[in-house]
Amino acid sequence: MQLYLPIADLPVNIFLILAMGMAVGFVSGMFGIGGGFLMTPLLIFIGITPAVAVASVTGHIAASSFSGALSHWRRRTVDPTLALVLLIGGTVGTFAGVWLFTLLRSYGQLDLTIAISYVVLLSGVGGAMFWESVGAILRARSGKPPTLRRPGAHNWVHGLPLKLRFKRSKIYLSVFPVVAIGVFIGFVGAILGIGGGFILVPLLIYVLRVPTATVIGTSMMLTLVTMTFAIVLHATTNHQVDAVLTLIMMVGGVIGAQFGVRAGQRMPGEQLRLLLGLLILAVGIRFAVELTIRPDELFTVRALEPGS
């Protein structure tokens, strides 16, 4: 069944988009992270332009994060102070990301920038997660205890000035690294159409030493707000948000997430991290292959934007 997407300006199979949304929702529910890092590449691979894919997926991520963030807020697993400081940086990063998105699109360099960014980011994160999870599995099989970081252990980040007490997380930390992480997550999310949870969660746990109990909820709250800002800015500035596409992805994502949560609860943490690392690494390699393949058409004709 073909459906015409008005903003993407091409017909797509509605069942294919629905199936993709269900698959990404399954992954999101299984691993507890946003699926933007997977959905955006999938849309690009089926012919949707990167600009429309990135802008439309931000709406899908915001909607998917709403119920999770609300649930964590009710269970008091969100650190309001930490979330607020992260949002200050996230808002700045989102505005900067949308500005650069618009600039690159006007110069015709957006597609290449998105592809290279995905190769570097996903290959790096996926490779690191794969290496760490394989080590954890080998240690477990040999009977060695896992190499956990000592609770309360500090690094150079904790020596920075202008500290603030985050009561819910029970940490005393400088606001500078927190704001910097927020800027980075907001910027990357606006440029690449990803929630950034698979980057934010490890940063909060391993760099800032935030307790795991408050990391997931705080991460989802940041994702919800930054992605809401991003979709509004993309819709008003670039006019690239395809509401029909976003709605289909949302329906599939909600259905798939229910099954993903159940599957994730039955697997050990090391195996989950290994599968996630392989999945992220595979998407990064797929983008790298796309960059090296000679295109069928060496030149494209594009209408100039008004005022160009």
Score class of each variant (00 low, 15 high):
159 G>S: 10
115 A>W: 02
154 H>C: 07
173 L>E: 07
283 V>E: 12
74 R>G: 01
31 F>K: 00
276 L>E: 12
278 L>K: 05
284 G>N: 11
182 G>H: 10
69 A>R: 02
72 H>I: 00
113 T>Y: 13
82 L>Y: 07
271 Q>S: 11
131 W>K: 10
133 S>T: 08
163 K>Q: 12
121 L>H: 15
77 T>M: 04
144 K>D: 14
131 W>G: 05
238 N>P: 09
162 L>R: 05
264 G>K: 00
296 D>C: 15
80 P>L: 01
35 G>V: 02
82 L>M: 10
70 L>R: 00
70 L>C: 01
273 R>S: 13
243 A>M: 09
177 P>A: 04
131 W>H: 12
31 F>G: 01
226 T>H: 14
73 W>V: 02
226 T>M: 15
181 I>H: 02
216 I>S: 06
186 G>C: 14
29 G>V: 02
197 G>E: 11
27 V>Y: 15
26 F>C: 03
35 G>W: 01
23 A>P: 10
2 Q>D: 14
160 L>T: 10
71 S>R: 01
303 A>P: 14
270 E>L: 02
298 L>S: 13
3 L>A: 05
130 F>R: 11
23 A>V: 09
279 L>I: 11
282 A>G: 15
212 T>N: 13
235 A>Y: 08
257 A>D: 02
226 T>G: 15
270 E>P: 15
196 G>L: 09
247 L>P: 04
256 G>L: 01
150 R>L: 15
128 A>H: 13
10 L>I: 09
150 R>A: 12
306 P>H: 11
292 T>S: 08
111 D>P: 06
218 T>W: 00
197 G>W: 06
139 R>P: 10
49 T>D: 15
37 F>Y: 14
38 L>T: 13
292 T>V: 05
122 L>F: 15
71 S>N: 07
185 I>C: 07
223 T>K: 06
165 R>P: 11
127 G>F: 06
119 V>E: 14
73 W>Q: 03
295 P>H: 01
160 L>H: 05
306 P>L: 01
264 G>D: 05
270 E>Q: 10
295 P>D: 04
65 S>M: 02
